[in-house]
């Protein structure tokens, strides 16, 4: 984006995880709930939203590439210069709801 990387839009776009609607129900999540995502030794806490109908299959999460998704990325590039940043195995859990606003 040409706007600031500190703009509300950019932060909102890259600062959520999309989960398929069925998984949201299964895990008792509603949009805006904070979830914890763990990959190896790294973890982040981030709000979730339901993906558009059929966009994601069950078990697959989507995050736009940015600050938060990169925090889950390892630094091993397997000799390519690029760490795996897609198709990463993660554990997801609900963070006890603390209403922020």
């Amino acid at each position: 984006m040409n706007e600031s990387k500190f703009s509300k839009e950019y932060l909102e776009e890259t600062g959520v995880v999309q989960i398929c609607p069925e998984d949201m129900i299964r895990l008792g999540l509603v949009a805006g709930d904070l979830v914890c995502i763990r990959a190896e030794q790294r973890s982040i806490e981030i709000p979730c939203v339901a993906a558009k109908e059929k966009e994601l299959p069950s078990g697959l999460l989507f995050m736009a590439y940015g600050d938060w998704s990169s925090r889950l990325m390892g630094s091993d590039t397997h000799g390519t210069g690029m760490p795996n940043s897609k198709g990463t195995d993660v554990y997801l859990s609900k963070v006890c709801p603390i209403k922020k606003d």
Partner: peptide
Amino acid sequence: NPGEFTTTDTLA
């Protein structure tokens, strides 16, 4: 040499 001279690697 990717992996050796690429930026993620030289920093990490």
